[in-house]
Amino acid sequence: MAEDRRGQRPARGGSSAGRGSSASGRSGAPSRGGSSGSRGSDSRGDARGTSRGDSRGGAPSGDSRGRGSRDDQPRGKGAPSRGGYQGGKGGPGSKSGSQERGFRGRGEEQQPRTASQAEYDGPELPEDITGAELDRGVRAQLKGLPEKLAARVARHLAAAGVLIDEDPETAYQHTLAARARASRLAVVREATGEAAYAAGHYAEALAELRAAKRMNGATDYLPIMADCHRALGNPEQAIKLAKSPSVSNFSTEAKAEMTLVEAGARRDMGQLDAALRTLELAPLNSKSRSAWAVRLRYAYADTLESAGRESDALAWFHRTHAIDSEELTDAAERADLLERKQS
Rank of each mutant, 00 (worst) to 15 (best):
D227A: 12
R139Y: 00
R267L: 10
G40H: 15
A315D: 12
A207F: 00
R82T: 02
D121I: 03
G57Q: 12
G37S: 07
R67Q: 11
L125V: 13
G18E: 04
F103I: 14
T219Q: 08
A159C: 12
H321R: 12
R113Q: 14
E236L: 08
V247C: 06
A118K: 01
A322C: 13
A151Y: 03
T252Y: 01
E147R: 13
L338A: 12
G93D: 11
E133D: 08
S31D: 09
A186I: 14
A322S: 15
R12F: 00
A307H: 08
P74T: 08
D330P: 10
A47Q: 08
F250T: 01
P123E: 05
E133C: 06
A331R: 00
F103Y: 07
L145N: 13
D72N: 13
A159K: 02
S286Y: 09
A150G: 13
R189N: 13
E326C: 11
G83N: 06
V153H: 03
E133T: 09
K89T: 07
A274H: 13
G84A: 01
E253L: 14
N216H: 14
D336S: 13
V153N: 01
D273N: 15
P80Y: 00
A132K: 08
D72I: 09
A322Q: 15
T303K: 10
A180G: 04
S24E: 00
E109V: 11
R82F: 01
L206P: 04
L296M: 13
G90R: 12
A335E: 12
A274C: 01
E133F: 04
V294H: 04
Q110F: 06
G57L: 13
L304I: 10
Y300T: 05
G161W: 02
R155F: 00
P123D: 05
G217K: 14
P168Q: 04
K341A: 15
T252S: 04
K148H: 14
R230P: 05
R104A: 13
A199H: 01
G57C: 05
Y300Q: 10
S81T: 03
E339T: 14
D330Y: 08
R230Q: 14
P112M: 12
K240R: 15
A196I: 09
L272I: 13
E127P: 14
R214M: 10
R101D: 14
R319W: 05
S61P: 02
R9K: 09
D42L: 08
D324V: 10
L134Q: 11
S343M: 15
L241I: 10
N249D: 08
D4I: 11
R65I: 08
D42W: 09
S311M: 13
G83C: 06
R39Q: 05
I323K: 07
G161P: 00
K243A: 14
F103E: 08
A160M: 11
D227L: 00
A151W: 04
F103V: 12
R334S: 09
G20E: 09
S244Y: 01
A118T: 02
D220R: 02
G20V: 08
R19H: 06
P74R: 10
S21A: 11
L260E: 04
G62E: 07
T50Q: 01
R67S: 07
A198C: 00
A256M: 07
A191D: 02
R184M: 11
S31E: 12
G193Y: 02
